[in-house]
Design a protein around this nucleic acid. Structure first.
Lengths: 230, 230, 230, 230
DNA sequence: GATGAATGAGCCTTCATTCAT
DNA sequence: GATGAATGAAGGCTCATTCAT
């Protein structure tokens, strides 16, 4: 895992993530581009605020300060704007963009950096992730999108694990893909709990970010029997 | 963890799980009881088949072979039947009912039995779990229900972990609650993937149940540094 | 053509005229039957008054004094009510029900009775015929309905013609079906002109009914060379 | 009917056929003329393909390869393009342009030539005739247009009939106008059946054109008791 | 209790027409 | 003249809930 580029753990250099649907042709004029952008932005705002299911198209057009009919100039349906919203945010959601790691030879250090980057990205896009979870329960198209996103992380982490197993620094008794699915899932569940559910119940104290990072990293490292306890 | 009753790990002795809503009075007559039961059964069938959102009340009354109006004799809304459905299934979903473990002193053996029981219960009620995930995304009431169910498992497992930590057979470097949340979440994510998503995509080979049990158990045990590798 | 039952000329003993569509199940209760009937009646009124295309479902429900949603209890669409309207009127439209002819052996007398019956039925249902012409231009389903209705008349008249040809009292130089189509068409065109268009242009004097009957009868008889001029 | 110019039977030397509407001023520039022509041509294509009611203005402008807004430079509405389309095609629809008849003294020969010319013109413009029938059911303006066109033929044929009656070669027992309306209608109905409906139902064998001509001619001649059977 | 018809608010979608560039 | 985005009125349809029988 030394020379493995950090992104290999949770990151995703983003194969364009297969189009969600055949979007309408992009606007030709500058004015059109502005309106379309306003609609996408408005949709994100409304979806994040009211949820996908409870939002009406007219909420979006009102937020975008345009007529109801204008929506259909750019999108064929609510699904389609959502696709546009997700596509636009995809980059930031999928490229945790973890910085340089001091000691790239230390699996724990690399892992921690990776987890931190992932969790930071999740936190940044928490409301969008919540939205994605919601629509994945309702629209098969977005269930697949969620699946592809998850798989991207899982496959990369699986490669990292296999690599460490080959170098003898990770437990060889588990299948890399399955272990990756379990451990990546563990992190995402924690993120969901902390940043999505945590936000909603203000009764509870917010999760301590650093503790979150160090706990999942430690459990992960232990789970794979990284050498050298801390 | 030796004397800890198995249920202590994933199980739940079911504190009445706070009523989901103030249900209407139970039917007085025998006929009434029959109709109500038919409605609950029909609702489960319809919800599991079509999803909560896509099902109409008339689908349920048709399935129950009764008139649309009769529904309101027993339930005030769609939410309320769902509550009844979940309440009825709660017992089996929450009490994995893991059998006696041979060597209750072996943390790994206990853990494995616990995980197996949890996963079997999940598999048994997979469609209902899928339904719960869906409604949790839409109705705050059921989000809380899901949360309470998860917390029940998490708290029990946290107690088990704290116990093992106290006995010196589990890593003391992690907070029991947080570790429990992470590891319990890991298992539930795997279950969701295998039994909910797996069912929908018949293209993929079904997950091998035993491998699933052994993998999550091994990762969990490692994560907490249970003594004695395998 | 003597013993040929009169209906054989323009009439139609009505093979049920193939359902226009799979109508919803008829209402079970008396109240339901009343509402449904009110809707069909209202639809006929509105369609005849405003035309099929210019009428809105809410016009119909208002006319029927019921809520907009009630419409869908009985019909799935505007098309479907129209089907019901036509089905209900079909009997009268298709069974001119010409009375006994004095001399059933006189082809001219039979023919005249038949034409009179046809034209009277057309006049009685003129607004409905106008409606049928309109929808036939727009909905393939009703184009077929119109076609079946026309064919019923044409086939019967063709049989009458073939019969007379066999008896040597009609020109054998024409194909019975084609001649029937031409002559039946001639009559229907005249009816359309007199009772549909005539009504709309009050500027013109109304067609004299008896002259209409005698003219088409005479032309028809001549066209087939019935013996014995008048 | 001898010296009667052939067109006198079904033809129409086209009195300008009263403007359908007050069209906008014709384009001044060459570019304008080109755009306008493209729009009329596109409208005809689209109307004939999709029907008047199912076609949208944007279909027309797309077909004409111009912007939606440009439409209004030349036409005030959908109706107005249709008027332009019909005006442009009027010439060919109304002037069957029947060739010289060998023996202009033979009523049957003249009649047959006239019918053939009419039917050929109908066939040539079948899709436009279908369109005209459609719009006549919907727009009063075009109902009148259709009426004027029909009247032109009917009046001419009525003159021919009156002429023959005067010469003693046609049944004097019928009113020339009414007989003309009936017989002209007979021919147009047959044309509509063969060329409009026939095209739509490819299941049926196409009508034999020569049989069509000879049948209507024979029936017509008989109906008026032209001398000398065939 | 059961029945099933009646209710009507609410949202999506279309497309002729206008208008700023 | 041409462009093409913006407008917004209009109407269809759904379905949870009510209510008369």
């Amino acid at each position: 895992m030394d020379s493995t580029p950090p992104e290999e753990i949770h990151g995703d250099k983003a194969p364009p993530m297969a189009p969600l649907s055949h979007l309408r042709e992009p606007p030709t004029t500058k004015r059109g581009a502005r309106t379309r952008a306003a609609l996408v932005q408005a949709a994100r705002t409304v979806f994040e605020r009211d949820g996908y299911l409870d939002s009406r198209l007219t909420d979006i057009t009102r937020e975008a300060r345009c007529a109801a009919g204008s929506f259909y100039t750019y999108f064929a349906s609510k699904e389609e704007v959502l696709a546009a919203v997700l596509l636009e945010a995809q980059e930031d959601m999928m490229h945790p963009g973890m910085g340089r790691v001091q000691d790239a030879d230390d699996p724990r250090a690399v892992l921690e950096a990776s987890n931190r980057a992932y969790l930071e990205a999740y936190r940044r896009n928490a409301r969008l992730m919540a939205l994605l979870e919601q629509v994945a329960q309702v629209e098969p198209e977005f269930r697949e999108f969620r699946g592809r996103r998850a798989d991207a992380f899982i496959r990369r982490n699986a490669r990292g694990i296999a690599d460490l197993q080959a170098r003898g620094v990770a437990d060889r008794g588990v299948d890399p893909m399955m272990a990756s699915r379990a451990l990546s899932g563990m992190v995402s569940v924690m993120a969901y709990h902390a940043f999505v559910l945590g936000e909603r119940q203000e009764s509870q104290p917010p999760t301590d970010f650093e503790e979150l990072v160090s706990t999942v990293t430690r459990l992960w490292a232990n789970a794979l029997r990284f050498p050298g306890h801390r």
